[in-house]
C-alpha cells in the first residue's frame, strides 16, 4: 500500500473481494468458477489412469468446462489419485501451495481416503483429509470415470451453494 492521502479512500483487491463475497455478485463469480474447473494431471496410481481416461476423448469432461492441465499454476482442482506416501507428501504439499486460489481438492479412490488396500503399509500416509482441505471424496478402487465426473459435478454444486472449503467465505 502506498502513502495515505487525506480525504482519499484507498482500497485493495482483497478488500474488494471480501466485499463482493457479501453481495449477489459472488453468485456470478462462482458460476464462472464452477464452469472452468481445470484439473491438474498428476497421475499417482491406478486412479490416475482413470483420471487420464476421463479427461480424454471418450468421457470428454470438456463438456462441463473441466480441462486437464499439466502445470499446477494453471489448475484449479487437484485430484489426489492414489496412495500418498511419506516420501511424496512434501512434494504434494508443494504442488498444492503452487496452485493459485481459489483451489479445490478431490480425493479419488480408497487409497487417498483411508489408505485403501495399503492401509497397513509402513510407507503410506493415512487420513489425508487432516492434511488437506478436501471437498469431495470419491470412493472406489479405482472409481470409474463416470464416478469422477459425478464427483466434479458435486463440487460444482458445492461451489454454487457456497459450501466449498476451497474458497474462504
Amino acid at each position: 500500500m502506498g502513502e495515505m492521502i487525506e480525504n482519499v479512500n484507498f482500497t485493495t483487491s482483497s478488500a474488494i473481494s471480501d466485499f463482493l463475497k457479501k453481495t449477489p455478485a459472488q453468485d456470478i463469480i462462482n458460476w464462472g468458477r464452477k464452469n472452468s474447473l481445470w484439473f491438474l494431471t498428476q497421475p499417482m496410481g491406478c486412479c490416475g489412469v482413470e483420471m487420464i481416461s476421463t479427461g480424454c476423448s471418450h468421457y470428454d469432461t470438456d463438456r462441463f468446462g473441466i480441462i486437464p492441465r499439466d502445470s499446477p499454476r494453471q489448475a484449479d482442482v487437484i485430484v489426489i489419485s492414489g496412495y500418498v506416501t511419506k516420501k511424496y507428501l512434501p512434494a504434494l504439499k508443494l504442488v498444492w501451495d503452487q496452485m493459485p486460489a481459489p483451489k479445490w481438492i478431490i480425493c479419488m479412490g480408497d487409497c487417498s481416503i483411508s489408505g485403501g488396500p495399503f492401509y497397513e503399509s509402513y510407507s503410506t500416509v493415512q487420513n489425508i483429509d487432516e492434511i488437506f482441505p478436501v471437498d469431495v471424496f470419491i470412493p472406489g478402487c479405482p472409481p470409474r470415470p463416470e464416478a469422477l465426473i459425478q464427483g466434479f459435478i458435486e463440487l460444482q454444486k458445492k461451489i454454487m451453494a457456497k459450501k466449498d472449503i476451497g474458497t474462504d467465505y
Binding site: K86, K87, S114, Y119, E120, S121, Y122, S123, Q126, N127
Partner: peptide, 28 residues
C-alpha cells in the same frame, strides 16, 4: 532407493519389524 532417509535402519521387510501393521488410519 525407495524409503525416506528417516526410515533407514528400520529394515521394514525383516520379519521382526514392528511398524507393520500400521494402525494410524482413523477409519478402521
Amino acid at each position: 532407493l525407495l524409503l525416506i532417509d528417516e526410515m533407514l535402519g528400520d529394515w521394514p521387510l525383516r520379519k521382526d519389524y514392528d511398524g507393520y501393521p500400521n494402525k494410524t488410519s482413523k477409519n478402521l
